[in-house]
Design a protein around this nucleic acid. Sequence first.
DNA 1: ACCTCACACTACCTATTGTAATGTTCACAA
DNA 2: TTGTGAACATTACAATAGGTAGTGTGAGGT
Lengths: 137, 137
Amino acid sequence: MKIHSFKTNESGLNRFFGPLEAKIMHILWNGPEMAIKDVQARLAKEQAINFNTVMTVMNRLVDKGVLRKRAQGRVSLFQPTQSLEQFLETQSKELTNDLLEEFGPLVVNHMLDALEEADPALIEQLEQKIQALKKER
Amino acid sequence: MKIHSFKTNESGLNRFFGPLEAKIMHILWNGPEMAIKDVQARLAKEQAINFNTVMTVMNRLVDKGVLRKRAQGRVSLFQPTQSLEQFLETQSKELTNDLLEEFGPLVVNHMLDALEEADPALIEQLEQKIQALKKER
DNA sequence: ACCTCACACTACCTATTGTAATGTTCACAA
DNA sequence: TTGTGAACATTACAATAGGTAGTGTGAGGT
């Protein structure tokens, strides 16, 4: 399985995951390899949560290929298969490709407006890249 | 209701809609205001389909705000609330914004690569826009 | 031998999408 | 006037995704 949907009405990790999934990924990305119990403990700081619930969701994340499970004696330790940076890299690349593939010129038209809103400095960055590309040829 | 998910494993309208929904929108976008029966007839050219199935899905599309229903005597006529162009415009704008909001610099890095793959002419278009923007200031 | 703990298995709930049976209403024809 | 059919409304079931949690199983320590 893989991530196959980007939610426009959410933000952050919730764009790729369900709310509980997102919390779990957040914990695993901001800590070491962990057992279910450890993740449950972290989650329980906010809100009591059943051990089995955490286990089920974590196993589903393994099925999806975003977590890796490793047996350590009696317990299983979990960690993301990719770093957060790699994950965002992969996702943003795929989305960017999909967007251009799907919309082409439309996206180019929106790009600048969007860049201005998000962070004008990015426009500079983009121009630099265009210039660099031109020199190559 | 609104569109709130962009599917990376599909293409075209199927990125925004379920497969039957997509076919229905395709028909309504490429023809005049239509009754359910008309849509059903078009769909049936490929594959027999129950009238009620078409009706249910079309009414759901009305609930989502992408179709408008208008009573015409005994029958209801349906048409998209936006033209296909407007719809794609809206979606691509929203996605572009979301992408930059979420990933910022990462997207800028991927943009050029993606542009080259999709259509090198788009890079020109982008550069033109950057220049135009600079003159404004 | 037994108890506990971690894990597996199973199931239920909600939402979304596809599917379709059943119920209702009303115009028009016989 | 009655009844028939067309169009719509209502309801429901299946599949999938995600959240929740009960029950079953097995291995280690006591």
